[in-house]
Each structure stands twice: as C-alpha cells, then as structure tokens.
C-alpha cells in the first residue's frame, strides 16, 4: 500500500466518522425545524418523517400573532437589552479605570471581583427578594435588570480589562500630547478600538436574561412581565395548550438570533470564556 492509498483510506474513515457525528449533532435540530415547518392536523404527529410532508409557515404565523407570545418576546427584549446596556456601560467604565489608572485599592478591587465570582449566589435569592420589595420595585423591569447586571458584572469587568490591557498606551499618550482630555481619549480612541471586545461581552451579558428561567420565575409574579423563557416553559410543561409545531416555531424564534451570533463569533466567544475562566 503506497502513501497515497493510505491517505485516501484515512480520509474516507475520517469522513464516515465526521458524517456520523454531524448526523447525531443535527438530528435534534432537524427535528425541531421539521416540527415547526410541517403542517399537522392534530396537536402532535404519530408518524416518523424525515422530510416535511406539507411544508408551511403557518406555525410561525400563529406564534407571531399569539398575543401572549408577543408580550413575552417584548418583555425578554426589554430585560435583555436593558441589562446589556446598563451592565456594559458600568463594566466598561470600571474596566477602563482598572486598566489605565494606578490608584490605591486597584488590586483589592480586582481581587474582590474574583472572590465575588466564587460566592454562593443562590444563597442571595431570598435576601434579594427582600431588597426588591423594600425598594418597592417588585415586578418592574428595573428590578431584574439590576439583578442580572450585578451577576454579570465580574465577568464583564475582567473580560474588558483584559482587552484594554492589550491596547498600547502610546496611542493615548500621542492623543494627550495633541491636547485631548482623558475622557476624549476614552471615548474617541479606546472605545472604537475595543469594539470587538465590547461586542463579545455584550453577547455574553445578553444571553443571561434572554435564557434565564430561575430569576424571572422567582422574582416576577405579574404575568404581564413574564419572559420568553417562562412562557415557553409553561408551553412545554403542558403540551396541550399549543401544538408542538407552534412550540417549536416559538423555540426557533427565541434561539435563532443568539445561535447566529454564537456561530459567527465562535472563536472570540471561546477565547473570552476560557480567559475569563482561568482568571475566575
């Protein structure tokens, strides 16, 4: 057997292996797509199909006109984008200070974030409920935005500080000589350069409120503030309320934006995660 034959046989086995893995990976996803895009007469289907028999987008039309689903979608969007904007702004300001200033207490502050990441956050749930009640903001958007922001802050600060550290200081010094103020340097030089890191951190922050079930379950008692996670959970808990097709269409709408972002930014997200992990 010569080298080329050997290479060919090796390639063939590699392809067979990778096709099997890809199939196993893709089956659940294909099944959701199939259920969402196929027209069924009953709530569920009892036959096994590989391709849609009657392709349709009816399920999507139904879920996108479902008043409850639209309300959940709106709430989730407000919670998630509110948290992202709020937490990212605060984290960027802190990360910049930790990266560029040499102030007393800097090391302690950074170490505190690391220790904070290791503390029993679930022990805080009941006291948090008491605080939210005390502040009189129960069932408000701001209450959960604050909670999700606090729980994402440590990761966001460390992640952004790590990136700011890689931006050469000479750039700022040059701008300062030209008469720019520290704030101008921050907004005109650092922020534009840090766009990739800001985008990645924003995706991570956004994911938490968008997919978290526990926090909204514990803190929201007003049904008009329920999130997508709570809504879809209630549909899945009792598959009699909506058809599987409608449920799957709803799941796809909830999953698709994040899935695309995660696939597009995979490399940066993975390095962000592992960097944050080794530091934390």
């Amino acid at each position: 057997m010569n080298l080329r034959q050997k290479q060919k046989i090796g390639d063939m086995f590699s392809h067979i292996f990778l096709i099997i893995v890809s199939l196993l990976t893709f089956i659940p996803i294909w099944w959701v797509l199939l259920t969402a895009f196929d027209k069924r007469v009953s709530l569920v289907s009892t036959d096994f199909i590989i391709f849609p028999k009657n392709p349709t987008i009816d399920n999507f039309m139904e879920v996108l006109t479902h008043p409850k689903f639209l309300m959940w979608l709106k709430n989730s969007f407000i919670f998630a984008s509110g948290t992202t904007i709020f937490a990212l702004t605060l984290a960027t300001l802190s990360a910049y200070a930790y990266s560029r200033f040499d102030f007393p207490g800097k090391k302690a502050g950074l170490a505190a974030y690391v220790i904070y990441m290791m503390l029993p956050t679930t022990a805080a749930l009941i006291p948090q409920l008491l605080i939210i009640k005390f502040l009189g903001i129960k069932n408000s958007y701001i209450s959960l935005i604050l909670i999700w922001s606090a729980s994402n802050m440590a990761f966001a600060v460390w992640n952004l500080k790590g990136y700011f550290d890689t931006i050469p200081k000479s750039l700022e010094e040059a701008a300062m000589i030209d008469g720019a103020s520290k704030f101008q340097v921050f907004t005109r030089i650092i922020l534009p350069l840090a766009k990739p890191a800001l985008a990645i951190t924003a995706i991570f922050i956004f994911t938490a409120p968008w997919t978290d079930y526990v926090t909204s379950y514990l803190f929201l008692t007003d049904a008009s503030k329920y999130t997508l996670a709570q809504g879809l959970y209630s549909w899945a808990a009792d598959f009699k309320t909506v058809s599987w097709g409608v449920f799957c269409a709803g799941s796809i709408i909830m999953a698709l934006p994040l899935t695309i972002l995660y696939v597009v930014f995979q490399r940066y997200l993975i390095s962000g995660l592992t960097a944050g992990g080794t530091k934390g």
Partner: peptide
C-alpha cells in the same frame, strides 16, 4: 476620576448581590 469610574459598578454589585449573599 478612576474612583468615579469604578463606583457605579461596585455599588450595584454590593447592593444587589454582595450584601444579599452575606445576608444569605
């Protein structure tokens, strides 16, 4: 200025998370 930058984040973390954890 540095303290001004780090205070909002610290405040949120302390009030909404750290203090409740210690209480918990």
């Amino acid at each position: 200025i540095a303290y001004l930058y780090i205070t909002p984040a610290l405040l949120v973390v302390f009030l909404i998370s750290l203090f409740p954890i210690i209480y918990g």
